[in-house]
Design a protein around this nucleic acid. Structure first.
Lengths: 210, 210, 210, 210
DNA sequence: AGTTAAGCGAGACGGTACGTCCGGTCTTGAA
DNA sequence: TTCAAGACCGGACGTACCGTCTCGCTTAACT
C-alpha cells in the first residue's frame, strides 16, 4: 500500500470485459464518484461513508455506482488509483547501486504518503477491507500489492546480482523484514512514523539488531 | 495482538468506575454475550456479526449489551480476554539467556495463535476496528498492546544487560523489526505464516539480511 | 365517524403535493398495508398493533409505511376510507320530506356500522387517537368529520326550508344533540346500541324529553 | 367523567383486599406518584407519559408503581380522584325544583372542569384508555361513571315525581340525550365548549329541536 | 436525420440492523 | 416487608443504508 499513486491499472481490459458496454460510460460520473468517495472518507471516515452518500455527493444515481463497482471498497480502490490513471506501468524503484540509500529513499516517500490525510484514511480502510472481502483482495493483489512486490523484488534481485545481498536470500522474507516494521507502526501506532524511523528500519534490517 | 490469551485486564477498577453499578451485573449474561460474540465471528465473520445477532444468540436483551459495551469491537475485545480473565498479570517472555531461541519460541507460539480460527478472526477484526474507533484503540493499547510491549521490552532489556544487544538500541524499533514482519504477513498474506517463517524472522532481524 | 365507508378523499391533490413522488408509489404495497392494518386491529386490537407488525403482515419494508404515513393512526384513517376510495363525493343523507324518518334511517345505518367489528375497532381507535395527535385530527376533520357535518347540515337546512325545523336553529347544536347521544353510548357503553335506541334518540331530540 | 373532583373512592376496601398488605404502604410515595402522573400528563400528554417517567419524577422505584397499580391508566384514575379522597360520598346534583336550571348549573360546572387543563388531559386519556382496557373500564364504571349515573338518575327521578318529566321516560336515554352532546363536542371538537352551549343543550334536550 | 438502446438521475422497494425507549419482572441492600 | 435503585429480557420505535427495481430523460451509435 505504499507509493500507490504511481501505480497503474494493469488490467483494465479484463476488468471491463465482464462489465456493461463501457464505451457508453459517463466519464463525468466516474470522476465525480471517485472524488466524492475520497472526499467523504477523508471527512467522515470509511465506516461512516455510505454508497448512498457517495451517490448523493457525486450527484449520481445509486445504480450508476452499482453498475460499475461491486462494493464500496472497490470504489475506493479505484479512487486511490485515480491520480496514476494515465501511467503506463509502475515506476521501478531507484537503483543507484547503493541498496541502503535507495531503500531509505523509497521508505521515506512511503512515510510521506502514509502521512497524507487524503490517502492515509482510504488506505487504512482498504488495508482492512481486504481482510473481509476476498474479491476485493484479488483486486488489491493484482493492481496494487502485486506490482509493488514485483518492483521490490526487482530491486532486491539487482542487489543480489551486485553482491549486496546473499544470492540465496528469501525475497519474500526480505520484503516482510523491510516493509513489515513500517506497516506495523503505521497500523498499530507503536511509535512515530518519521523519515528517521524509515532510515533506522533500513539499517537494522540490512545489518541486524546486534 | 499476540498471546492475547495470557493477558489480564489491568485496569478493571478504573474501567468500572465509569460504568453503571457493576456489582449488580449479571455474570451469566456477560459470559453468554462474550461466548456468543466469539462464536458468531468464527462462524459468519465480523462484518456479518451484528449486535442484534449476539444478543439473540446469547439470549439477552440488546440493552444489556449496550449497557456495558460501547461498540461491537469492545465486546470482541473483552471476548478475546475472556480466557485470561482470572490471571494476575501477563506472563513474562521466557528468558533462558539465549535471546534468539527465546524469541523463536515466542513467535512460534504467536503463529500458532494466529492460525487458530477461533482467535484469528476476532483478532483480525479488532486489529482493523481500532483503526477507525479511537476509543477502542485506547482500550486495545491499555489492555492488550501495552502489556505485550511491556514484556517484550523487559526481555530485550535483559538481553542488553547480558550483552546480546547493544545498550543504546531503540527498543521500540527493535519490537517493530521483530514483530512487524509477522504482523505484515498475517494481515497482508504476503506468504505462508509458519514456524519456519518465525525462525527466519528472528535470525534475520538479529543478524541482518546481508 | 359514522358512515365512513361512503366518504371520499376530498383533498388527494393537496395531500400528495407534500409527499414524495407519488407517481412511483406502489399501489400493491399500499393496498397490502391498509388491509393488513385493518386485519391486525380487528384481530389484536389497536394497542397491540404495531407498525412493525403491519409491515410484516403486508410483506413490506417498514420504511414504505413511514414514507407515506406519519403515524399508525394515519394508516388506519386511510384504511377506513379504502372502501370508498373511488367514490366521487359523500353520498347525501336521504331526503324524503320526513325528517324524523330520514334521521332514523341514517342513525340505524350508523348503529349497524358501529357494530361491525371490522370497523368498530379501527374507528374507536381513531376516535381516541385524534385526541392526542393534532395532525391526525386535521386529517380526520378534513376527510371524515367535515364531509359528514356537511351532509348533515344540508339535510337540516332542507328541513328548515320545509318548516320542519325553526329557521334560526343552531345547526351545530342540532348535530350534537342528534349524534351526540349515539356517540356517547358508543364510547361509554352507557347502554345497548340498537336500532330502537336510534329511533328513540331521534324522537327525543326532535320533540324534547318532556 | 364530569365533576370527577367531587367523587369518592367507593370501594377502597374491595380494591385493597386483593393487594399486598396495604398497612405498610408508603403514603408519601403514593402521593408523589399520583402527583407526578398528573404533572407529566399535563406537560407531555398521556402517550408520552411512561411509568418509568412517573417513577423517576416521583423519586420512586418502578416496582412501587407496579405493586399497587395494574396499569398506567389505573394510576391516572386514582390521580384524578386524589382531590376527592376524603369525601364520604358523591355530592348529589342540586335539586331546586327547577330541572332546567339545575341541569344548566351542573353542565356549566362540567364545562368548567373539562376546560381545566389539569383535568382535561387526564380525563381524555382515561376516556380513551377504557376503550382498550377492560379492567380499567370496570374501575371507571364502578368508581366514576356509576356514581355519576346514580346521582343523575336520582335527580331525573325527582323531576318525574314532580311532573317535570314523563313517568315512563327511559332514564338512560335521557342521560345520553343531556350529557351526550357535551361529550361529543368535548371529544370531537365540533364547536366551542361554553356555558352558553351547556344552556342550549339543556333547553333543546328538554324541549326538542322543533 | 431518425431510430434505438444504453446509461443516466432519481428514488421507491423489501430488508437488516442500528441504537433508544419502555414494558413488566426480578434482585439487592438500606430502613 | 416495603422501598429506591436499577439490571434484566423482550419488543417496538423511527432511521440509515443495503442492493434491486423501475421510471422517464438524455445521448451516442448505427441505421
Amino acid at each position: 500500500m505504499q507509493q500507490v499513486s504511481s501505480l497503474v491499472k494493469t488490467d483494465r481490459l479484463v476488468y471491463f470485459l465482464a462489465m456493461p458496454n463501457a464505451t457508453r460510460r459517463s466519464e463525468r460520473s466516474r470522476q465525480a464518484i471517485l472524488t466524492a468517495a475520497l472526499d467523504l472518507v477523508e471527512e467522515a471516515g470509511y465506516a461512516r461513508t455510505s454508497i448512498e452518500g457517495i451517490a448523493a455527493r457525486a450527484g449520481v444515481g445509486k445504480q450508476t455506482i452499482y453498475r460499475w463497482w461491486p462494493s464500496k471498497g472497490a470504489v475506493l480502490l479505484d479512487a486511490l488509483l485515480l491520480p496514476s490513471e494515465g501511467d503506463e506501468g509502475v515506476e521501478p524503484l531507484p537503483d543507484t547501486g547503493d541498496l541502503a540509500a535507495d531503500l531509505k529513499h523509497v521508505l521515506r516517500a512511503t512515510v510521506d504518503e502514509l502521512r497524507n490525510p487524503r490517502y492515509d484514511g482510504p488506505m487504512r480502510a482498504l488495508a482492512t477491507e481486504i481482510l473481509h472481502d476476498p474479491a476485493l483482495h484479488v483486486q488489491w493483489s493484482e493492481r496494487i500489492d502485486g506490482p509493488l512486490t514485483e518492483i521490490r523484488e526487482v530491486r532486491l534481485r539487482s542487489a543480489q546480482a551486485a553482491g549486496e545481498l546473499p544470492a540465496d536470500l528469501d525475497l519474500a522474507l526480505a520484503i516482510d523484514l523491510i516493509w513489515g516494521p513500517l506497516f506495523h507502526r503505521w497500523l498499530q501506532g507503536s511509535g512515530p512514523l518519521t523519515a528517521e524511523f524509515a532510515d533506522a528500519v533500513v539499517d537494522s534490517a540490512l545489518d541486524g539488531l546486534r
